[in-house]
C-alpha cells in the first residue's frame, strides 16, 4: 500500500509517520505532486494556524493538488479545517472540499468557564462511517484545537465541548477528516488509521 503524507509548513508529521509504522505502513512524506497523486492513500496532517498554512498551500500549488485527488484522503486536525470552505482563524478562505462549512472559534456561553484550547480526550458519538468500524459510541479520542467545525450533513462523528456540539469527523466522497488526532488516540486511533488504510474505495 502506497501511502503519502503531505509535507507542508505544519507540525506533527512525525507522530503520523510513527503511527503508520505501528500499523505496518512505511509512508512517503512528500510535497511532490506526482508522488502524492500516485499514492493509494493520502494523509493531510498537521498542527498550525489556518491563514499562514493556506498561504503556503496556495503558493506551493498544493491546494490544487489536494483538490484534484481521487483516492481516499484523510485530513487531521488543521487538515480537517483546511478542507472546509472558510476559517475564522485569520479570516481565510480554505480549500472548499467541504462546501459551506465555516471554521469557528470556541466562545464560552454566558456563565461558563471554558478552557481553550479544547485539549484532551473527549468522547465521540453518532459514528456513521466505515472509518469507525470496531469503535463504540462514546469511545475517547485525543483533541487539541481552539477552532471547530459545526455539525453538518457532512459530519460522520460528533462531539461536545463547552456546550457546543460539533464535527469530530467529516466526509465528502473520497475526502475524510478528523478534528481529533487518531495518531495520538491510543488503540482507538490505531483502529481508525487501520480502517482508513483498508477502506473499500468505490
Amino acid at each position: 500500500m502506497k501511502v503519502a503524507v503531505i509535507k507542508y509548513n505544519a507540525g506533527n508529521i512525525c507522530s503520523v509517520v510513527n503511527a503508520l509504522h505501528r500499523v505496518g505502513v512505511e509512508p512517503c512524506v512528500t510535497d511532490d505532486p506526482a508522488l502524492i497523486r500516485a499514492a493509494e492513500r493520502v494523509i493531510f496532517p498537521g498542527q498550525g494556524s489556518a491563514a499562514p498554512t493556506m498561504t503556503y498551500l496556495r503558493e506551493s500549488g498544493l491546494d490544487a493538488v489536494i483538490a484534484s485527488l481521487m483516492q481516499p484522503v484523510l485530513g487531521i486536525c488543521i487538515g480537517q479545517q483546511l478542507l472546509c470552505g472558510h476559517s475564522e482563524e485569520g479570516n481565510v478562505d480554505c480549500l472548499g472540499i467541504f462546501p459551506g462549512t465555516v471554521v469557528q472559534k470556541f466562545t464560552a456561553p454566558a456563565g461558563v468557564h471554558l478552557k481553550v484550547p479544547h485539549m484532551g480526550w473527549n468522547s465521540v458519538e453518532e459514528l456513521t462511517s466505515p472509518l469507525f468500524d470496531g469503535l463504540k459510541e462514546g469511545d475517547f479520542v485525543y483533541f487539541v484545537h481552539s477552532y471547530y467545525v459545526p455539525d453538518s450533513p457532512l459530519s460522520i462523528a460528533s462531539t461536545e465541548y463547552g456546550g457546543v456540539r460539533f464535527s469530530a469527523a467529516m466526509r465528502r466522497g473520497n475526502f475524510y477528516a478528523t478534528q481529533f488526532h487518531p495518531e495520538k488516540s491510543g488503540n482507538v486511533g490505531e483502529r481508525i488509521i487501520r480502517n482508513f488504510i483498508h477502506l473499500c474505495h468505490d
Partner: peptide, 8 residues
C-alpha cells in the same frame, strides 16, 4: 517513546 506509544 514516540515510536512505541500512541498517546501524547
Amino acid at each position: 517513546v514516540a515510536e512505541a506509544v500512541s498517546i501524547p
